[in-house]
Design a protein around this nucleic acid. Structure first.
Lengths: 242, 242
DNA sequence: TTTGGGCAAATCGTATGCAATCTTGCCATT
DNA sequence: AATGGCAAGATTGCATACGATTTGCCCAAA
């Protein structure tokens, strides 16, 4: 029940951009832990525990948890506490439906703004992805998932729309949760090649093709999930609790 | 079922809304005030003021302000306080770009799920819009803007994707801020007829046309804005402060 | 053995106090 | 008269205290 070892306390930028946003740093840290599955869905995140872990008062910890709740990564129950979200199959479908809608638009914007330097950066990122794919072990798996999501986030960043970027931030994070819950093969191993295909199309300036490839990519990710409704009642949460 | 109940994003679960999430209620109240321009961009919202206004402690007021900051309706400055957002022209463009991306997708979903009852509800909503249009005075203007936004939110609610619904909630709210800042004619008077056109296409099941009409509608709203960069320096905020 | 009630522990919700930081107005100095 | 600095006031950032609510356990009674 000790979550301390699951959280990397050092992955917050040293001397946070604002000394005040300690809650931001905590949010970031917890977010990372959730995204690469060090914190499993259902895990309880009590205010006092989080607070003492990061050596702050409950006030600050609470603010961080509220932010995470706002972006759907944790769910809070009144007088009970905060828990890492346990998205339902329906939620999962909606997440991917949203991505199918937004990501082609991001591609369309990105293709007009992407620079050769960006392309090079993307290649580096894909290399890293590849490296993790070849490694074994859960740590490499986690890194692979993270890197895979980062590809989409980099794309959003190149598109230059901070609002869509934020939406994608949320969608990618929640996707990661969904994959953790319903993923069959852990990671769709075809993901990497599909990323490179998208990037190739982008480099050639073929936005149509890139968008189409992206849609297929999202389809594949979702197809790898097992979204059967093995939970018809309200006690589902209890069953899938860790 | 009744659409007007679906609009409310905050009543995610009955028990969430009921007992005492007072900060939620405050957020809602402030949100409405901002959306229909009773609170102008730049207005300062101090914790103590908000707190005493709603008869709660600063803690609760602060939580409400944090939520509003998260959805971009207020901006907080360290050790200075929270202010109603003052979106830049660039932000405005990004908001509308996002809407152009998302709303056609919402139409596509809505057209598969909309019921005759929904259509009737939409008609009622449009009638109300019309009524406000014919009235004079700032109060009617505010109500008109609100009603106009509600049309888009109802659409998102019919689409049945709570994630997109939340995104739209944020986008519509921020659009209202932008219109307040940069609107030329206050409200594009053609908005109402465009809404009815979209609804007509939806009723006929012509999703293509409805989506196209929606894009044009958004284009018109944005075209009515004056997004010149009349603010090259940092003192812009001071000038546009109230 | 099972069920029901009640008590204790844990945790959250909220208020409030204190320290730090920023703003503002005033005064001295040039 | 203008500028620079200083001190008082105001406001936020954070920690902590206390009350409220839920949960789990234990024990008694059927």
């Amino acid at each position: 029940m000790n979550i301390s070892e699951k959280i990397n306390l050092t992955d917050t930028t040293p001397e946070d951009r604002s000394p005040e946003d300690r809650s931001m740093a905590i949010r970031e840290s917890l977010r990372n832990a959730i995204i690469d599955r060090r914190l499993a869905p259902g895990t309880k995140l009590s205010e006092s525990e989080v607070g003492s872990l990061f050596d702050v008062s409950r006030t600050v910890a609470r603010a961080a948890l509220q932010m995470l709740a706002f972006e759907g990564l944790v769910k809070t129950e009144r007088n009970r506490g905060a828990f890492v979200s346990n998205p339902s199959p329906e939620e999962a479908r909606q997440i991917f439906a949203s991505r199918r809608l937004i990501e082609p638009g991001i591609i369309a914007s990105a293709i007009e703004r992407i620079t050769p330097e960006d392309i090079a950066e993307f290649r580096r990122q894909l290399d890293e992805e590849q490296r993790y794919m070849n490694e074994r072990g859960p740590a490499a798996r986690r890194a692979e998932i993270k890197a895979s999501g980062d590809f989409h986030l980099m794309l959003a960043s190149v598109a230059g729309n901070v609002i869509l970027q934020r939406f994608m931030d949320e969608l990618v994070a929640r996707s990661s949760l969904v994959i953790a819950l319903y993923g069959r093969s852990g990671v769709s191993s075809c993901g990497h090649s599909e990323h490179t295909a998208v990037l190739d199309a982008l480099e050639k300036g073929d936005g149509e093709r890139a968008a189409k490839l992206m849609i297929h990519h999202i389809d594949h990710i979702e197809a790898d999930l097992d979204l059967q409704v093995k939970q018809g009642l309200g006690l589902k949460d209890a069953l899938s609790l860790v």
